[in-house]
Design a protein around this nucleic acid. Sequence first.
DNA 1: ACATCACTTAATTTATTGATTGAATGATTC
DNA 2: GAATCATTCAATCAATAAATTAAGTGATGT
Lengths: 218, 218
Amino acid sequence: MSRAKLQVFEQFAELARVLGHAHRLELLEYVAQGERSVERLAQLSGLSVANASQHLKQLRLGGFVQARRDGKRVLYGLADGPILSLLAALRTYAERNRPEVGKIVSDYFHRLDELEPVSRKELVHRLKAGTVVVLDVRPQDEFVLGHLPGAVNIPVDELKRRLADIPKNQEIVAYCRGPYCVFSFEAVALLRRHGYKVRRLQDGYPEWRAAGLPVGSS
Amino acid sequence: MSRAKLQVFEQFAELARVLGHAHRLELLEYVAQGERSVERLAQLSGLSVANASQHLKQLRLGGFVQARRDGKRVLYGLADGPILSLLAALRTYAERNRPEVGKIVSDYFHRLDELEPVSRKELVHRLKAGTVVVLDVRPQDEFVLGHLPGAVNIPVDELKRRLADIPKNQEIVAYCRGPYCVFSFEAVALLRRHGYKVRRLQDGYPEWRAAGLPVGSS
DNA sequence: ACATCACTTAATTTATTGATTGAATGATTC
DNA sequence: GAATCATTCAATCAATAAATTAAGTGATGT
């Protein structure tokens, strides 16, 4: 094997190894909800502070989380980059390849209170009541072809620089292509980091339309 | 942490750990080209047979490869499931998050950007139009196990003395094992020196096949 | 049946990784 | 500037993983 290739595989392996520990995956999930101190993360995951700190260090060296000091605490948050895509790929693979655990996985992912996605039915209800802003984070060309009524389109890659367009005082529901599309996960993660109250639609535009619910186009 | 959640993260971590070794990633790349015996895989990756066997066992338990007996040999092939998606996610993350990966690639792989890789989508288009010659520069045994439709096989080390077999008036797209395989880079460099109009496919045979695109065999 | 081939498994040594403890650092408060 | 708090670092021991060697298994051919 060429030296370059070996080096590249070594880098990949190093990153995979960082994800190769249950505690680190758990910490990563807590961190993905928003910034937290080491002590809080240790508490949430039932680790000693020193142990949590060491795991967080590895996550940081792997580029999965970033740390910033706030007074005498250090707050860890999710780093930039396609981290959630990577985790989604791992999850998808695991669900398909380990069917005996697939059920547990989906149960768990759909259980989390804060992450619990909004059902179509619930969204219909809240659209009528007008208590929600619907955010379409797909690319513009897909939005043009059809979208949820009254939805605002901000593609997920533009989200960061268009935060001003999003009202901070209302609850947001983000959606994208479907249940296995990561865009809305990323959008929710980003917006939560910036203090928005946001949840994701359980599935995406195709399912909405297939259910015979009204759609808009422009 | 709840018991279910612990189990889930433990499963994820276990799979990630399987990918957490350079030798296993390398074996996976060879296996992705087509079925191969343990001895051949050991040879290709420079491992002892026993060591390769043990790594392959881990890949098998992780569901990444599958083994079948053929006479007195055991052939390992890529298993079903979104394995290449997972590897692609890891690669994407690594490239973005580890600048050194990008640097190694550009240093040793002759400046990726200047070679203007052709995407799968574009190649499909141009194959329909018939405006392109597809050149497979992998070793012959890999070509035989499967290749892009209509591809011409000239292994990269034979390329120099078989230049006459390559039409000079048509555009060529060269491909090999995957995005980190050097063969197509070398082929493009050589052919360009000799005045051919040639670009490389962005990724390789395994990705083409995984995308459900048609393949030939002989 | 015996020998051979291709591979797997077991046993061993060596190296790496994880958890715990306690000391060190850095920022705040008194 | 001493005390306190939150975190990191360093040292240790236990657990796990990797590579090597040698023995074991299962299929094929003579």
